[in-house]
Amino acid sequence: MMVIIMDNLIDISIIGYIAGTLTTFASLPQLIKSLKEKDMSNISLTFVITFTTGLSLWLVYGILRNDYPIIVFNILSLMFWIPITYLKIKDTLKKRKLS
């Protein structure tokens, strides 16, 4: 009985790692494009702030649950989205200053 439960937990973790990999690295092309073009106008400030806050809360949740896939992939996602958030805020402030 215990072996079956352990096998199921391993399978569940694999699903978590695959899902985390896909959702985390889906952000990478946007970060590369934004850095390369130095243009953040195609990204909503509200989205960026809400998404980054959500990732931060998922990280806290993962830490509280001691759930490694959630912890690992939210740290990685934040590594992508914190720079995007910084660039978007900087771009927004720059455009408001020019107006």
Rank of each mutant, 00 (worst) to 15 (best):
N8L: 15
N8H: 15
L9Y: 12
D11R: 13
D11I: 13
I15V: 09
Y17A: 06
Y17G: 05
A19W: 03
A19P: 01
G20N: 00
T21C: 05
T21G: 05
L22T: 02
L22G: 02
T23G: 08
T23A: 11
T24C: 10
A26Y: 11
S27R: 09
S27F: 14
L28G: 04
L31N: 05
K33Y: 12
K33H: 11
D39I: 04
D39W: 01
M40A: 15
M40W: 11
M40D: 09
M40K: 13
S41E: 03
S41T: 03
S41L: 01
N42C: 11
N42F: 12
I43W: 03
L45K: 06
L45Y: 08
T46R: 11
T46Y: 12
F47W: 10
V48E: 04
T50F: 15
T52M: 14
T52L: 14
S56Q: 12
S56T: 15
L57W: 06
W58F: 01
W58N: 01
V60D: 06
V60T: 06
G62F: 00
G62E: 01
I63M: 12
L64P: 02
D67M: 04
D67V: 00
D67S: 05
P69K: 04
I71D: 01
I71K: 02
V72K: 05
V72L: 15
F73M: 05
F73A: 00
L76D: 02
L78M: 04
M79L: 15
F80S: 04
F80T: 08
W81T: 14
W81R: 05
I84V: 15
I84W: 09
T85S: 03
L87N: 09
I89A: 03
